[in-house]
Write a protein that binds this DNA or RNA. Structure first.
Length: 321
DNA sequence: CAGGTGGATATTCTGCTGCT
DNA sequence: AGCAGCAGAATATCCACCTG
């Protein structure tokens, strides 16, 4: 009986409260370091909609057009086709501090190019499989069902605005315009830049609200498909920004055992020679041992607490309807 | 013209344990 | 999924420029 209820509760994460998100989303504005607004998570989300081949294939050709002034950057970026996967690896290396060996990159590039080549050859299989059944993995996600895209950076906002205001001046091509925008950006005073930073924060808030709305209304099937397709591409699982996550309407209901562990773990003294995962393992094992020695009536306390929480949740739900 | 890019850095998540 | 704990991995964010 419990498990069924838990399952039901567990399915709720998609049900969010927009107004509370608006609230939490606004808060990050204070303080020097805005507490995680996860703009990028949405950008990352955008990858879902972005054919992997698009980003990987395009780059190499584009790189050729790099100006000579960009020499250094160009060499740095010869690995233009780097995807987030590579990025992830480099990031991982970074966290291990001194590990960062630059000579590693070429290797990756080669393997990725090889992978690309393989990917290109694939289509042959299509003929062999004339009727691939529509699965979530292959399901096409309609444009309007894709998660909202991220707000971009202050600079992006500036460039956008720059383009709009200089549209009529007949500037050469887009690339020159970007260069001009970049120069203009550099000439901005700190104050002016701050304006764009403020704008960005506003956009982040709006974006969090949009994402919340999306999470509320998205077809669960679509959401599942997005998740599966993302995983299939080797992308990390979809992460819901904290500001949105915290808007989930009610806390999860803890099962009796979890409730007990939470309480009992505080009383366990961990041997000094343990660290990291070993500590957690030790505590769980100790808690499990204890749980087994407990009588039904002792356990009943925790069961009652859980049931009470469930009743409370049900009542709240009723009231909301 | 919206957003991708890489490197540095800040922040968050995962794994792992047993049980419900 | 949730309970605890934390090392290490993964991801977000930033800038400045670039791209299709």
């Amino acid at each position: 009986m419990f498990s069924r209820l838990f399952q039901r509760v567990a399915l709720r994460p998609l049900s969010l409260n927009v107004s509370s998100v608006a609230r939490t989303a606004v808060q990050p504005l204070s303080g020097a370091m805005p507490p995680m607004v996860h703009t990028r998570s949405l950008m990352a989300t955008a990858y879902l909609a972005m054919p992997a081949a698009k980003s990987t294939v395009k780059k190499p050709a584009a790189k050729k057009t790099a100006t000579t002034t960009k020499k250094a950057a160009a060499t740095k970026k010869t690995t233009a086709s780097k995807t987030t996967a590579t990025k992830r690896k480099t990031a991982a290396k970074k966290t291990t501090t001194a590990k960062k060996a630059k000579g590693v990159k070429p290797k990756k590039r080669v393997s990725r190019i090889a992978a690309k080549a393989k990917a290109v050859k694939k289509p042959k299989k299509k003929a062999a499989k004339p009727k691939p059944k529509p699965t979530l993995l292959k399901m096409k996600i309609p444009k309007d069902q894709e998660p909202p895209k991220g707000p971009g950076t202050a600079y992006i906002i500036f460039v956008t605005e720059y383009f709009n205001t200089h549209k009529a001046e007949g500037l050469a091509n887009a690339r020159n315009r970007v260069s001009e925008a970049a120069k203009a950006w550099q000439q901005l005073s700190d104050e002016d830049r701050q304006k764009y930073e403020d704008l960005r924060r506003e956009k982040v808030q709006l974006h969090n609200i949009a994402l919340t709305k999306y999470m509320e209304t998205v077809d669960p099937k679509i959401y599942r498909a997005l998740t599966l397709q993302r995983r299939a591409k080797g992308k990390p699982s979809f992460r819901i920004p904290e500001a949105v996550k915290s808007a989930i309407d009610s806390p999860p209901i803890r099962n009796p055992y979890a409730r007990f562990v939470g309480e009992y773990a505080k009383t366990i003294e961990t041997p000094a020679d343990l660290s990291g995962l070993a500590i957690g393992r030790y505590r769980f094992e100790e808690a499990a041992k204890k749980w087994k020695t407990m009588s039904d009536s002792e356990k009943q306390i925790y069961k009652d607490a859980t049931e009470a929480e469930i009743r409370e949740y049900e009542a709240k739900k009723e009231a909301a309807v």
